[in-house]
Amino acid sequence: MAQVFAYILHKDGVVDDTALELAAAAKKIDAGATPNAIVVGAGDALDGVCNDMAASYGEVWKVANDALTYPDAEIVRKLLANILPADSIVLFAHEHLGMDLAPGLSVKLDAAFVPDVVDIEGADGSTLKLVRQEFGGAVSAHVTCDASQGAVMTIRPGVFAADESKSAGGQVVDKSADAGDFAATRKFLEIVEAEAGDVDITKSEVLVSCGRGIEDEENLEIAFDLAKAMGADVSCSRPIVDAKWLPKARQVGTSGQTVKPKVYLACGISGSFQHMGGIKGNPFIVAINKNAKAPIFQVADVGIVTDMLDFLPELTEKIEEL
């Protein structure tokens, strides 16, 4: 079996949660093997990250260079193509850096590519048996991947339980000198921080959240009415922000806000992983959706199969009477 490498996300010396999830995913490919980690970056904090990872990975390949102070995917892809052995299996988290970096890397390594893997059923020789989702999570698919010439995969964050065993007793190997030429093809300028909104939904205890099921901008009123009656704030899924019906600061999800309410009312929201990824702290989730098969019902505590446009005003009325 080929060597498995996991690309470690880290920031300001802090390792991302996905680092140990990738270790768990690697063990599902080959339970007997010890996967390796790749840590690239610059500065004093890098060694701490590498040492942390040595507890969970056999070898930690470190590439230190000032050009890597900010991990520009175009640069990192080049250096990975320079250092990775032929036929390796390389794992990334399926988030914005992985999406930027991994598909092109598979081409440069002439390896197979499988994005957004949600489960690994094992390997049959060099054929990997994987699970993905399609159509926004409405259905799952079994996928086979011929990894005989290597494979690059992105793994959905949060689906593998972190491997906390920390028993690898690994070592850090400095590969900085082998990284070769990795001149930038685009120039990193800056990070523009999100604008603050009129309400800070990250502090809200109760959220009435609207998705595409709200259908029309004018219907948002019924959500605001309900929120007022409940003493809640209104948040939303991404399509509502894309349509410019509500400001970005009210969007819940991986590319929006991370909220930690006690109660979350998901109205007309299908339950995509990018949306659910922004809901933390295990709130009581009520899903109101007219499609009984909507994926949100798999993760909600309580479900109501109904048209939210009729249901929300009736609920508001009842609460106002209390």
Binding site: A112, F113, V114, V131, R132, E134, V139, S140, A141, H142, V143, T144, C145, D146, A147, Q149, I285, A287, A292, I296, F297, Q298, V299, A300, D301, V302, G303, I304, V305, T306, D310, F311, E314
Partner: peptide, 26 residues
């Protein structure tokens, strides 16, 4: 090198408790 062999619905945990009855009861 990458092939979808089939679609399926995964076995889910408990899932949501679906509230049933008339709208008023719900």
């Amino acid at each position: 090198r990458v092939q979808r062999t089939d679609y399926f619905l995964p076995e889910m945990g408990d899932g949501a408790e679906i509230l049933e009855g008339s709208t008023e009861e719900i």
